[in-house]
Design a binder for these strands. Sequence first.
DNA 1: GTATGAAATTTCAAGCTTGAATAATTACCT
DNA 2: AGGTAATTATTCAAGCTTGAAATTTCATAC
Lengths: 167, 167
Amino acid sequence: MSDPTQKPSLDVGASPAFVKQNLRVWLKMLKATKHIEATMREKLRMEFDTTLPRFDVMAALYRFEEGLKMSELSSALRVSNGNVTGIIERLVSDGAVLRVPVVGDKRAMLVRLTHKGRDEFARMAAAHELWINDIFSSLPPDTTARLSSIFDTIEHSRGLIAGDDHA
Amino acid sequence: MSDPTQKPSLDVGASPAFVKQNLRVWLKMLKATKHIEATMREKLRMEFDTTLPRFDVMAALYRFEEGLKMSELSSALRVSNGNVTGIIERLVSDGAVLRVPVVGDKRAMLVRLTHKGRDEFARMAAAHELWINDIFSSLPPDTTARLSSIFDTIEHSRGLIAGDDHA
DNA sequence: GTATGAAATTTCAAGCTTGAATAATTACCT
DNA sequence: AGGTAATTATTCAAGCTTGAAATTTCATAC
């Protein structure tokens, strides 16, 4: 959430030119990201008749064969609890996901992909990987390497952006 | 589509290493973008009791004082037609937006900010700019400049990502 | 044991988003 | 003119998303 040690924006380094420059960069990054996301959304719908949220949920479950608790799932995806409930409901009724009670804790539910779900996701993930590759390999030569370098630097800098992903 | 310049294996199957690398970069970019977006969403809600979609609509209308047709608005924001209808409805009932019939075309509606809407947006935009600045100026030194360089290159390359924004 | 609070999940209302269907108007063509 | 196609906007169903409230269960203290 919000960091209590965060200072109000009275930074000395906030010269108007830099402020505008930061805003411009953010808007460009946002636009590029949304464009790619929209492409993935459309392709998932056209070729697999599914949605991006479902894909994201299945991706998380795919990584954890043993299953995840609902709370683990929602915090992994950084979405609200109530959100996951609905998506899982539909995945269950489609036979892609299985709900298993957790022994020793009657509150919790373990959620995991069915065999069918794993197969489906494996095919979607392979396609998704290629779609992304198509886009990035059509960009100017060093784009991926340069972006990679930037995001690595950010991650190692304890910046406000880096996710605390243990992977 | 494929333009082999420096990377090996662009045209044919794309080497597995590059495919994975592209995917990794995309996931990092997506995560960073979503994190910033979530921050903006939360701040808009906390400090101005509004939402990101409303902010986006108002931003578009702010740029066009004379107003925009619904179709222009939805294509500017790259969202569906039906989407804008609902958001505008709420903005109208909040007194931030005005609907004006277009002379000579009984189908079209011109939508523009009211005085109150302009004032509100001006305050939100100023805050938003500083929030973004806070984030980007907390990143490693050259981050903004390097990202800017990348996105400029992409724009000038007629890549698949660049938006055709004439402004 | 019992109370009190924390944790896990679901439910809910409100709003966002999409694609498709509908309705109304305008543009074009012969 | 008359007919067909394209444009403009709204409506609709389905699904996504959030934050808050409600429920059930667990853990800890007393």
